[in-house]
């Protein structure tokens, strides 16, 4: 299994609901403990987030548009953050490919965050350990939850349905199909980390029917009426 997210850049509206839902769920989760905030009500609030959305402009006016780019851990197949970890705190689960950090083993050396090109790992100053997206491992296998809710919090929260969760190893999963049909891609693929999370590019705009040939000249009666009645 190769669990991951598929994010539709065509429908993402950049509302940050996924990031807020992530913070809410994982902040009270036992997997990585609280996600600390620094000065939450102060002049310069900051803190640990697993999911961050940045906004870009593509192209030049008037042929420009906005790109909203949500980024969290890509759960790379070739995860350098795992190989550089000296303590064994960082690991990739063989059964489903989720990259996790054992909070009891991490010594907070920051090396894994240096090895990650996506900025997916953030050190929590209060615990002194590295934290990252868990793909809501404590939701997706929770048999107490209804089946449709066994998905990461970010996916459930997205109001534009721009996020999909699935097994990208299974060619018949909805996520894999979407990647195939829409030409999904991974970010910074030239670095060779083989990110599992995929992004779907903008759809080809649906053609708007326009009149291409000149309309036939109106008949006699119509020409007569047109002449009689001023519009």
């Amino acid at each position: 299994m190769k669990l991951g997210l598929v994010i539709d850049l065509d429908t993402c509206v950049g509302c940050h609901a996924c990031a807020v839902a992530c913070k809410e769920w994982n902040g009270s989760s036992a997997v990585s403990g609280p996600l600390s905030d620094y000065e939450p009500y102060g002049a310069e609030p900051s803190g640990v987030w697993f999911n961050r959305i940045r906004h870009y402009e593509i192209g030049e006016y008037p042929d420009n548009k906005t790109l909203n780019l949500p980024m969290s851990c890509m759960h790379c197949e070739d995860a350098a953050c795992v190989t550089v970890c000296p303590t064994g705190a960082s690991y990739k689960r063989p059964e489903d490919g989720i990259v996790l950090i054992d909070q009891d083993k991490c010594m907070g050396c920051n090396l894994c965050s240096w090895a990650c090109p996506y900025g997916a790992r953030e050190l929590d100053r209060s615990s002194g350990t590295m934290k990252k997206c868990t793909l809501c491992v404590d939701r997706i296998y929770d048999l107490e939850l209804p089946v449709e809710e066994r998905q990461p919090a970010c996916v459930l929260a997205c109001p534009a349905h721009a996020r999909m969760f699935g097994d990208l190893d299974d060619p018949d999963s909805a996520a894999s199909q979407a990647v195939r049909e829409r030409g999904g891609f991974g970010l910074m693929s030239e670095l060779g980390y083989k990110p599992v999370n995929q992004y779907l590019p903008a759809r080809k705009p649906r053609p708007i029917p326009v009149q291409t040939s000149p309309s036939p000249p109106p008949g006699r009666t119509r020409t007569f009426i047109n002449r009689m009645i001023k519009r």
């Binding site: 000296p86 303590t87 064994g88 705190a89 009891d104 083993k105 991490c106 010594m107 907070g108 050396c109 920051n110 050190l123 100053r125 615990s127 002194g128 350990t129």
Partner: peptide, 9 residues
């Protein structure tokens, strides 16, 4: 290290 207690690992 932010968490030197685990340095032995």
């Amino acid at each position: 290290l932010a968490n030197p207690r685990n340095a032995w690992r």
